[in-house]
Computed example of a mutant assay.
Amino acid sequence: MKKRWVADASLLAVTFVWGATFVVVQNAIAFLEPLSFNAIRFSLAGLFLLGWLVIFHRSLFHHYTLPLIRSGIWMGLWLFGGYALQTVGLLFTTSSKAGFITGLSVVLVPLFSFLFLKQKPSVNAVIGAVMAAAGLYFLMGGDGKWTFNRGDVFVFFGAISFAMHIIATGKYSVHYSPMLLTMTQIFTVAVLCTIIAFLLEDETQIWNAAVLQKREVWTALLITSLLATTAAFLVQTNFQKYTTATRVALIFAMEPVFAALTAYIWAGERLTASAIIGCIGILCGMIFAELPIAFITEKRWRAKRRITH
């Protein structure tokens, strides 16, 4: 029991870090272009994780195989798409909206699992998806006049990419070492971000000492590379075995809430009444989608029993 509570608390801390990084990343990319930022972030994270494995888990390298590398690269492609689109989107939208739109990946997973893996979604997953879609409608105005800006569109496609990454992770993590898969996908993201940054962005900014020395930039790089990437994956890998997948999904559903709270506290962002209703709808949809169907059935049965008695 104690290990489960420690695991849940640790995963909740990881979720808070993920939610809080929306604000710090948004501050950093005002000085360093988004793909350049991610190139440095994931390079640092990959090096940190490589050092961790060399020092504490060197024997794992014997399990490196070509299929594992291919799987890690495929996961990294989706992860790259998610972070690249999300970070670009933060140039044009708010941290709180980006957090809730990204959170839609939780309810997109059952849909994509059905389309690509032929896994039939549960009834509560479908209802949760509808609730989240309604919440997204209110988040964007709720008056029929869509207020999607290009940042929201980028973040939404990033959410799709994150959902595909979750599916790929679930498919391959049961066959290969999670630690090696994590390191492979992190370096894949780092390489792709570096290549695209040199092609599309001002590559001189990556090596610009004046930019890298700005407090907003180096603080964001340290937080995202050390805490939100390296430590987060290590904590998840180490503690998830002590709790259930449903509890983990419910904990991760708190990420957009933390994003909105930190944006309110640190960036002074304000949401309209319609946007708040939308955020609540998305959060309820995400949580409902992850509730085990047995729990819902039991609640209905208890309610009927109280009525008949």
Rank of each mutant, 00 (worst) to 15 (best):
N27G: 10
R300M: 14
G89R: 04
G76Y: 03
A125S: 08
W18A: 05
M75R: 03
L192S: 01
L199A: 11
F187E: 11
F157W: 08
I307Q: 12
T102V: 09
V130M: 13
L227Q: 06
P256G: 05
Y264W: 11
A28N: 11
W146N: 09
G76D: 10
D8V: 10
F92M: 08
E290Q: 15
F22Y: 14
L227M: 14
A168S: 13
T184Q: 06
A245N: 14
L200E: 12
C279K: 04
T147M: 14
V17Q: 08
L50N: 02
V123I: 14
A249V: 06
H62V: 14
M179K: 03
S225E: 02
T219A: 13
T229I: 12
E290A: 15
M183P: 02
A39D: 11
R247I: 14
Y172R: 01
I287K: 01
P256F: 02
A303P: 07
F80M: 07
T102S: 05
L53A: 09
Q185D: 12
S177K: 03
G170M: 10
Q236A: 03
T169D: 05
I196H: 01
R215N: 12
L212D: 06
A245Q: 13
K241R: 13
T21R: 12
L271G: 12
Q236C: 05
I296W: 01
P110T: 12
T308N: 03
D202R: 04
V54P: 00
